[in-house]
Amino acid sequence: MMRLRCSVFAVWILALASTPLWGDNYIVHLAITIAMYSTLAISWNFIGGFAGYPSFATSAFFGLGCYVGALTQRAGLPVSAAWLCATAGVGIFAGLFGLIILRLRGHYFAIASFGLVEVLRLVISSSDSLTGGGDGLNVPLFHGGPDFVARIFLAVMVGIMVIAFAVSILVDRSRLGFGLRCIEQNEDAADMVGIDTTRYKIVAFVLSAMFCGTVGGAYASWTGYIDPTDAFDAIMTIKTPVMCMLGGVGTVLGPVAGSASFLLLEEFFWSHFLAYNRAILGAVIVIIIFFLPGGLLGIADGKGPRASFRRSLGRWLKGGPVAVP
């Protein structure tokens, strides 16, 4: 099964990476966006999928990565070093913050992680002298024509995505992944049988932050201009878990499948239904999650949509929770 998944992933990566050969720059832009969100979704999966902690901190890490990357680049560091700084900086931040926030569970954790996005946005927005506040920051634009720039950033984003995916496989097959799954099922029981839950959770939280930081740093160099509202975007922080749910929470390939299908659907709906695109997209997501509680990968595992629907309907009629994977 794992070999099959890896080959599906390899084919998908090839499809994304080859877009400059067969598509125009709009397609390449879409491929870069897909790679970017795939990395965010894979990252979220470490804490939200494996450990079952509903984190809404994705844009906090992404935004912080944007600002660390932009500021270090403006201070004169070469681009790649700036991205490494963004990765390390965000990772360390998540480690320290995780020490505090991971004592909370369930809804409380979700709210605290979402609060992080807002707090960071306000802090960055009011640190005028360093971050430019609401004026935003200009990042030195990449030299070279649009085709060249698009190819560079496609390579970078797909590269980050591949690394994140590889780490995700390693975690999935390691003791860490096993421990996180135990935490997801019953944290107290996991603690009882000797899993150092605090340490495991912090490692998962740091993993879920690091790649968001890298992606944020690369995004800042790509667009050339960031401001607090775009960097700490509340919609992004909600989109990412939705993508994972769409694909299959807690699986290796789920986040990749989910983010790709979500973005392609989104792209399709707004280009064809100018006025109602958001409403239609929302309805489609609700329907998919309602009928496919195991995500798109649930189909591949033999839990067909019809069977899932019957189960969901049965639970609903009995008054129980509907979308339980």
């Binding site: 125009d24 720059n25 709009y26 397609i27 832009h29 879409l30 966006t33 649009p146 667009t223 401001d227 509202t229 775009d230 975007d233 919609i235 707004w270 280009s271 100018l274 006025a275 695109n277 958001r278």
Partner: peptide, 21 residues
């Protein structure tokens, strides 16, 4: 015309779509 939903990321994406696509 396209709707970029008051979202800066999407505005950049749509500008690129308008130009190249």
């Amino acid at each position: 015309e396209y709707d970029y939903q008051s979202d800066g990321q999407r505005a950049a994406q749509l500008a690129e779509k308008l130009i190249t696509d």
